[in-house]
């Protein structure tokens, strides 16, 4: 059942993304509506799969890389679906949905080794820690997509050379504002996620900071976003520089998230210390 749901999810995400890519070239509201609905269907299957798996293993299904990537893709799609409802910025789907597919495919490529059950992860703290961080990451992923759109549009206007995307992309100010709000919402979530992580670490290992590679990288990522937020709020950074920093920040997230899960060892690489 789970496997079937995951296959259906991947199918839906792929079809939705293909739809959105077609929408990029052909401005038809019907294409967008269909793609959105397909993504929604995918998200429902995905949620079902994650819930089933979580119920089976008795904790939130983020115990290995495969589950983590899949859970992140789910949150990303849900975040996008909600943002789309709020903002009605249809073209955004063409930039966000490919990310979801990439994460979903990555999740199916990563070996699914079952991790020995550990009581350590069966805690509400872990659920809170992971969900807050992943939600923040999903918002930053949207900010990343919006920043790419911003840079594309900005370059066209600045260089006075207009490609086919020019009429399709929204105004610079709108893109910048969306990126700003994603940051405003994502940063507190990220902070909360980190704080719960440290708190839980302090509880079970009696020290909040353990020089785990993921801890170090997370802190660096947090600092990047802190700088971005500070510059935006205090100095009035906006536009190109802010967009580049948002892209840089998301790259740091990817390194923290994937690099550590796949290549480095630590207590986040899901082997119990």
């Amino acid at each position: 059942m789970e496997a079937l749901f995951i296959i259906l999810t991947t199918l839906c995400y792929t079809c939705g993304t293909v739809g959105y890519l077609i929408y990029l070239f052909r401005d038809r509201p019907a294409i967008h509506r269909t793609s959105w609905a397909i993504l929604l269907a995918g998200a429902v299957f995905h949620l079902g799969a994650v819930l089933l798996r979580s119920a089976r293993i008795g904790q939130l299904a983020v115990t290995n890389s495969q589950e983590a990537l899949s859970f992140f893709a789910l949150l990303l799609v849900i975040t996008y679906l909600i943002i789309q409802l709020r903002l009605q910025l249809r073209i955004l789907g063409s930039f966000v949905s490919p990310l979801a597919v990439i994460f979903m495919l990555a999740s199916s490529l990563v070996p699914d080794h079952m991790v020995p059950k550990s009581e350590l992860f069966k805690s509400g703290w872990v659920t809170l820690h992971v969900t807050a961080l992943f939600l923040a990451n999903a918002l930053f992923a949207v900010a990343f997509s919006v920043s790419i759109m911003y840079l594309l549009q900005e370059r066209q206007i600045k260089n006075k050379h207009f490609g086919f995307l020019y009429p399709r992309l929204p105004s610079l100010e709108r893109l910048d504002t969306i990126s700003h709000y994603c940051l405003l919402a994502g940063f507190p979530l990220m902070t909360a996620g980190l704080v719960t992580g440290f708190a839980y670490a302090a509880m079970v290992w009696h020290s909040p900071w353990n020089w785990d590679p993921k801890e170090i990288l997370s802190l660096i990522t947090w600092l990047i976003y802190a700088v971005l937020l500070h510059e935006r709020l205090a100095v009035g950074w906006r536009g190109r520089k802010a967009a580049w920093l948002a892209i840089f920040g998301f790259s740091a997230i990817l390194v923290t998230f994937l690099g550590v899960n796949l290549f480095l060892k630590g207590h986040h690489s899901i082997t119990v210390r």
């Binding site: 549009q153 206007i157 020019y166 105004s171 610079l172």
Partner: peptide, 9 residues
């Protein structure tokens, strides 16, 4: 048109 692409509203 350009102004609208920069500022939106």
């Amino acid at each position: 048109e350009l102004a609208r692409k920069i500022f939106g509203e």
